[in-house]
Design a protein around this nucleic acid. Sequence first.
RNA 1: GCCCCCAUCGUCUAGCGGUCCAGGACGCGGCCCUUUCAAGGCUGAAACACGGGUUCGAGUCCCGUUGGGGGCACCA
Length: 507
Amino acid sequence: MTLKARTRFAPSPTGELHIGGVRTAIFSWLLAKHTGGEFYLRIEDTDQERYVPGSTRRILESFDWLGITLDGGPDHDELRTMKTDEDYPGALDDGEYRGVPGPFVQSHRLPIYRQWAEWLVAHGYAYRATETPEELARMRAEAQSRKQTFIFREEMRLRTDVRPDEPHVIRMRVQPRDGRTEFDDLIKGHMVFENAQIDDQVLLKMDGFPTYHLAVVVDDHLQGVTHVLRGDDWLPSAPKHVLLYRYFGWEEPKWAHVPNVLGTDGKKLSKRHGAQSVFEFRDQGYIPEALINFLALLGWAPGGGDEQSVFTREELIAKFSMEGVGSSPAVFDYNKLDWLNGVHIRRLADADLAGRLIPFLAQAGIAVDTPERRALLLRIIPHIKERTKKLTDAAPLVDFFFGDIQTPPAEMLIGPKMEQHLSLYALRETRRLVEAVEPFEDAPLEQAMRKLGDDLQLKPTQLFTVVRNAVTGKTVTPPLFATMAILGRETCLARLDRAIARLQSGG
RNA sequence: GCCCCCAUCGUCUAGCGGUCCAGGACGCGGCCCUUUCAAGGCUGAAACACGGGUUCGAGUCCCGUUGGGGGCACCA
């Protein structure tokens, strides 16, 4: 039995939850759940400038929609006391869940970072500096003009007599200076970095906030994180974190730098490259089951000869392992997502699908707002399920059930390779049949219609096309006889009458 | 400029030295089923970036080249 993993997802509240980030979150969550451990959320709001009000709430809502439950994260109280009120109904009231200690919002942990930064100074692992961003930019530019890489070291300080009570930053002291820092990454393998390449990173900013580098290390340690999963764009700064763990004398977590998700253009997924928030996927009619399945497969495969590609959440949790995570970046493929979405839609129970469809139908102007209409939708579901790839596909398939139709133009009422009078005759005969069929159900209708087709010496396609178009006003519909049965005798008769009238006059 | 990562069909991938003239899935073509559209079944085309090694033997190990990506902030 593997040890229980505790993982976290630690976004900064700077906007919507992005699918690239979601995938990392999914891997983290799967790893935690696979081992029976915990997965929690931490909000990294240490950059006051980039803070976007409402994004924490949106992040919470995203996980809610995805069905990824958190074992820890900001509670109502904490959310309310953020820079802006970020309270979310789905958040829990407990101050601590499953033993993961909070607070979970970094701006609520400031004294902790200060304390550990001072600890580093006191123990010789960090020092105070006063260079302003402007001065640093100048130094950087100068180094560049001499074609040198700018790596900040304490002897470059403009002033060395920094007193603790004046404004300053705390920088880590990278040492040994000529050594190298090595660590093992679950995905990338053994990593070696020259310390000479690592700069004396600012750990505590002038405004009293920590930088990511300090905060992530302190929090991950204090909150018992066992596996650090994050995008591999963090790889170059990982040695700084490794060094900090060693300075503090803390046990290192397992590192896992997950390859990025690329856009179709081969570039890192970002706002400008077609990357989308989970809400956009939700609004486009994708269901969370499919999105999770798809994202999990982007970079992970069961391996060992297992060629399964459709997974439920539970199956993913059961089969996920870090060994299955690949080391190369993956391109987001909408074709496959669409297919998977269809697969998972087909797996939904009718009532479940109906419930998910209702908001999309409403969006399209189809109100399913009464028990009768709901029952109607439920009757239709079995016939549209396998025709629905995205929830947005349903509306055009069902609208003629819920409202009246435009009487189709005459040319639409003439069947393939048929004359007008023949089509008209077929329609009239169908009308008589519809009036008479008993019971007015799928099978009897089919039987009668097929016989009619034979009698008229029409191919099924010919007769059925004419009738379909007349009764639905569409050329693409669910299967005809079920459609007619659900529409009901009266509606079918009325529409046939109108079609007959149209064809009579339209000729 | 410096540092780092990556490299099997168009895409996601299996492959952890021989069982691979490279398997699966999406997509694409064809056929079947068929009242439209789907769904489903069968089937076809489609890949080990290149060059050196190591080895009896390399898609699999090593080095280099090329190509892609990422990082070099008091942003995460």
